[in-house]
Amino acid sequence: MAAEDDEQRDNAAPTLAQELGVDNFLERIIYFRKNNLYTAIGTSFPIVLVIEREKLVFFAPHRPLEYEP
C-alpha cells in the first residue's frame, strides 16, 4: 500500500510542480518524496529533481517529466 502511495505521489509531482510553476516565478516549488525534491522557479527555467542530494536531473520544459536512471 505504501509503495502504491509513493507511486501515486510520484506521478503527481511533475504535474504539481508545473501547475504551481506557471506565473509563479519566485516561489520555489518543492515537492518531497523520500529524500528527493522537485524544485522549480517558473516555467522558463528548468525544473530540477534532486535525488538524495547526489544527482540533479534537469528537465527540458514543456515535456513530460520522466526520469530514466
Binding site: P46, R53, E54, K55, V57, F58, F59, A60, L65, E66
Partner: peptide
C-alpha cells in the same frame, strides 16, 4: 547553463 537554460533533452548531473 543546466540550471538556467532550456534544453531539448533531460540531463543528469552528479553533484560530485
Amino acid at each position: 547553463d543546466l540550471a538556467f537554460l532550456v534544453h531539448e533533452k533531460n540531463t543528469v548531473l552528479e553533484t560530485s
